[in-house]
């Protein structure tokens, strides 16, 4: 009996101690990890979309509720105007979800740029969606609210040769991005208005993140 109690006590204390340690470490590193993930996974795509922006879109971000999901939006400032946002949407590819970062101008409703953030497509075939910049470049300047389809399905998207499923996934992701945009546009406009006034105020302290 004594041995049994000892076993229970030792394991409980050990687990509790370990849980406490990990929880506090997780809290301590949470912001840092989130920023690192942004920087290395989504960062290249975001910075590519916002080439020439005068702010750091990785720092100027906010979240909005879309039904039950929470989405992150990144704000780009061009020529003193904060009228561009980028957000992520997903389309089903050949080897899982393809993550797309879509940048859109709220005044014109046109796409300013598209970047692939995550994908697990066949290397050298579907993976060209990420590595071949000319594929995503074709979306630049198109209105985001249209339905995207590859040419083989009667649409407007030039598919990557040999990677139709991947191209369809990207098209579906963009169509989905259009739907998200339509749903959230009024809220986005409100947020951006606040942002352009708020950004001026907090500029000094927050710039060196």
């Amino acid at each position: 009996m004594r041995e049994l109690i000892k076993m229970v006590v030792v394991l409980t204390v050990l687990s509790a101690f370990s849980g406490g340690l990990l929880a506090s470490l997780r809290n301590g590193t949470k912001d840092k990890i989130e920023y690192q993930q942004l920087k290395f996974v989504k960062g290249p795509a975001i910075l590519d979309i916002f080439k020439g922006a005068t702010n750091n879109p990785l720092l100027d971000r906010f979240k909005l509720k879309d039904g039950t999901v929470e989405r992150s939006f990144f704000v780009g400032k061009f020529n003193g105007k904060t009228d561009t946002v980028a957000f992520e949407s997903y389309g089903k590819g050949f080897g899982g979800d393809i993550g797309l970062m879509v940048g859109v101008n709220l005044d014109t409703n046109k796409i300013v740029g598209v970047g692939v953030t995550t994908l697990s497509e066949t290397p050298g075939v579907g993976s060209r969606a990420k590595t071949d910049p000319s594929f995503v470049a074709q979306f630049k300047g198109r209105p985001l609210e249209e339905t995207f389809k590859v040419k083989a399905d009667g649409g407007q998207v030039d598919a990557l040769s040999g990677a139709t499923v991947t191209s369809r996934g990207v098209a579906a992701g963009l169509t989905d991005a259009g739907l998200i945009y339509k749903r959230l546009k009024p809220e986005l406009e409100k947020k951006l208005k606040n942002f352009s006034t708020k950004a001026v105020k907090t500029k000094k302290g927050e710039k060196n993140g």
Binding site: S18, L25, T29, Q36
Partner: peptide, 18 residues
């Protein structure tokens, strides 16, 4: 004990050497 330290390493790696 081992799992705790592995998780510590994992968190630190995510935070500093992503």
């Amino acid at each position: 004990i081992i799992a705790t330290f592995v998780t510590v390493v994992e968190l630190l790696m995510q935070a500093f050497t992503y």
